[in-house]
């Protein structure tokens, strides 16, 4: 199995000279099994380039599975620009957490409402199916065995443990840590006091996450914030690399990939973050990589380092 990062940013896409090496597109990761099965995790703006690549590979209508962590814009806004959606006969199965009373189809259909996009979902040539996932309820998609894991993020979010070809990785985004703030289904203008029940819920959520991540080879984790940024915005629903390392250490994870970078973190700052946490991870026996757009990682077996799918992008490029 291998994974490729098509978008590594959180919140909104950030083009420009400051993001050419790590990339400016929002969340999207592609997993491939050894025999070529494809699984897409999140549908941010990175999905557009992935769709164009899939179109070049496809010989006719295909079936694609898309796992969504949640439906904030930065995780879905690539969907209307996913070119395989315009191929008649193609089937696109979207798997996501169903929150509150709303139907997932309505939510995804809402992106393509006439006010937002010229073509309503019903008119899109590919056939869309919608499937509800539930934390802890495992399921299979082609070669992949998937375990959804509840996360701590406004209006709910799920991470996924993905097992395939005798190896495993996990996608843990978006999530806040599990101590100071609990996210429910209302607007937080700042941290609110935790009830006894809230504290119990947070402990349970954290324990379940560590249990599910136990022994996973590679964990891709929402590390949007640096510690000083987190201190100012603990209620935004994102974590720091330190918090991710703590979880990974407890779960005996071998490799952590920093992901969902803040749009304000330019390439030079990302280099510093990468160096700082490479060292912090090494000190406790965890290999820490910093994701960049176009990075391909083999999962399982002996670690052979990241490859560049897009030779124009990557932390080393453009520097002496």
């Amino acid at each position: 199995m291998q994974i490729t990062f098509w978008g590594v940013r959180g919140s909104y896409p950030v083009p420009g000279a400051a993001t050419v090496r790590y990339g400016g597109q929002t969340s999207c990761v592609e997993a491939r099994s050894a025999k070529g099965d494809c699984l897409i995790v999140d549908a941010g703006t990175g999905l557009r380039a992935l769709g164009n690549k899939l179109m070049r590979e496809a010989t006719g209508p295909q079936r694609y599975d898309v796992l969504l962590s949640h439906v904030h814009w930065d995780h879905i806004q690539g969907l209307p620009f996913f070119s395989p959606a315009y191929v008649p006969g193609t089937r696109i199965a979207v798997h996501a957490l169903l929150t509150a009373a709303d139907e997932l189809q309505q939510v995804i259909g809402g992106i393509t409402r006439h006010e937002f996009f010229p073509m309503p979902l019903e008119a899109v040539p590919a056939q869309f199916d919608f499937h509800q996932v539930e934390p802890g309820v495992e399921f299979d998609l082609s070669a992949f065995h998937i375990t959804p894991i509840a996360l701590n993020h406004p209006f709910g979010s799920v991470g996924y443990r993905i097992d395939c070809d005798g190896a495993s990785w996990a996608y843990i985004a978006d999530t806040a840590p599990f101590d100071q703030v609990i996210h429910k289904q209302h607007f937080l203008s700042g941290p609110e006091p935790l009830s006894a029940d809230d504290k119990v819920s947070l402990v349970a959520m954290r324990e379940a996450l560590v249990r599910r991540l136990d022994g996973v080879d590679t964990v891709v984790y929402d590390t949007h914030f640096l510690p000083e940024e987190y201190a100012r915005f603990p209620h935004y629903g994102h974590s720091t690399p330190d918090q991710a390392l703590e979880i990974c250490a407890e779960a005996k994870v071998r490799r952590l990939v920093l992901y969902h970078h803040a749009p304000s973190h330019g390439d030079d700052q990302m280099d510093q973050i990468a160096a700082t946490y490479l060292a912090a991870g090494a000190a406790i026996g965890i290999e820490v990589l910093t994701s960049f757009e176009g990075m391909t990682l083999p999962i399982g077996g002996e670690f052979s380092g990241p490859e560049r799918t897009n030779p124009g992008i990557g932390p080393g490029n453009g520097r002496a």
């Binding site: 814009w73 509150a100 809402g110 409402r113 406004p154 935004y236």
Partner: peptide
């Protein structure tokens, strides 16, 4: 209504123009 829908809680933690 359209802009409210853009900020609806599914899509955005802002959860509405009123916030």
């Amino acid at each position: 209504g359209t802009l409210q829908n853009q900020l609806a809680p599914h899509y955005s933690p802002l959860n509405g123009l009123e916030n």
